[in-house]
Design a protein around this nucleic acid. Structure first.
Lengths: 224, 224
DNA sequence: ATACATACAAATGTATTCAATTATTACGGA
DNA sequence: TCCGTAATAATTGAATACATTTGTATGTAT
């Protein structure tokens, strides 16, 4: 007998919420793009009701902005916004990793190592599509042992808001190799149980993404 | 001519959202209490649609939990949850205050001082009702100068999730005077421009609330 | 030609109605 | 009495219908 997966009897609202969240994160919907309720409901073959409820939830998550009687716009973050959010992430993730390392099991580390391998495959085929998801998986694997579900949820929320922009930076500046090297170093520090060094390094890792994004935008002259 | 207030043409959804949020924060709805859609819609004299949308939003804010086909429950946090959230707050608020102090204007400090006065009035009349709101106002006045809207919003969200519990601690342990004394000290440090001391002190201020709550619950024997 | 007002179209907001799921009660058998 | 089961009620989920608001186009006056 196979491990009886719990049948996921999703409601339409949650299904639509997840789908829209993914599509926003993937960049399918651009910054500032308007999401029309009827278009979405037609596309999904549902009424506008679950679509509206999904939009409400995504708004509270900060992924879109709803203006009364006008509609929902995909959130457009300024450079300052992104830098500020990365600052928060640096603080939270550094603290979380420091707490996690003494408690990481071999399984945790194996999980992270496995994700790193998938990274390499994606890197060789230049497959940027799953980069964001893999990135989340890697970091979450390292953090899980800290047993701080609320912090983890908060970090995931922040990830969701910043991923599009950091991915843009990675894509345009072709620094996937560097990011990968940093991930490898990070995993090594975890394996050595070097909590303090790892905490400091991940802080650097996150903030340097912000710096790279900043200098890229400054040079391109298309900052908002 | 009076300062033409923007006419607030609220939608029912946002009106209901705000009202429900307030009622949850005030403790009118207890931990784990179920919120029935029809009861609420009758009470407000609206249909269930705006109520449902409001609930979705509050769920994303973490104030309630929606279980498919079962309904919405007011979030019930364990002691560990509260301590974890206070930990995050300590980190964020300490960092934010450190950034704010060098930029605080006289107006900012006057605003904070004014809120402190209202605290004293509430303290003398033992009026605990507005404690949470005043507390938020005081802290936000101190933080505003940092010009970090995203951090501020995040902190407010965390406040919303923890306020009921810290207020319970204040109420039961009769430590309003102590909290007030700490606030006074905090304002003094800001007025002196002592960023580092203030940052460290607010960290202590927040974490000590957690400690007090913990020892209270441990002694009462009613921790969850 | 421009500015303004009006009429129409499109999108969102809300109420009502119907469908699916869950909780409760009543009943029957061991 | 206890347990399981069928029937029923209560509640939530979703679709449809209607109301309100906003955007656009047309027309008229200056």
């Amino acid at each position: 007998m196979t491990t009886l997966q719990p049948i996921k009897r999703q409601t339409l609202t949650s299904a639509v919420t997840e789908s829209l969240r993914q599509r926003i994160l993937s960049g399918e919907f651009a910054d500032g793009q308007q999401l029309r309720q009827e278009a979405l409901s037609n596309e999904y073959g549902v009424s506008r009701v679950p679509v509206r409820e999904a939009l409400r939830q995504l708004e509270a998550e900060g992924l879109i902005q709803i203006i009364d009687h006008k509609g929902a716009l995909v959130s457009k973050l300024s450079l300052d916004d992104v830098l500020e959010l990365l600052d928060i992430r640096a603080m939270l993730e550094s603290s979380l990793l420091r707490a996690a390392i003494p408690r990481q099991t071999k399984a945790d580390l194996a999980m992270a190592a496995d994700t790193l391998k998938q990274f390499e495959i994606a890197l060789q085929t230049n497959d940027i599509r799953h980069w964001g998801e893999l990135n989340s998986r890697f970091h979450l694997a390292l953090y899980r042992a800290a047993k701080r579900p609320n912090t983890l949820a908060l970090i995931e929320q922040l990830h969701n808001k910043t991923d599009r922009y950091t991915r843009m930076q990675i894509l345009f500046t072709q620094t996937m190799e560097r990011a990968h090297a940093e991930h490898t170093k990070l995993l090594e520090l975890c394996q050595q149980g070097a909590a303090e060094e790892a905490a400091e390094f991940i802080r650097f890792h996150i903030l340097s993404a912000g710096n790279a994004l900043e200098s890229y935008l400054k040079n391109q002259g298309s900052p908002r």
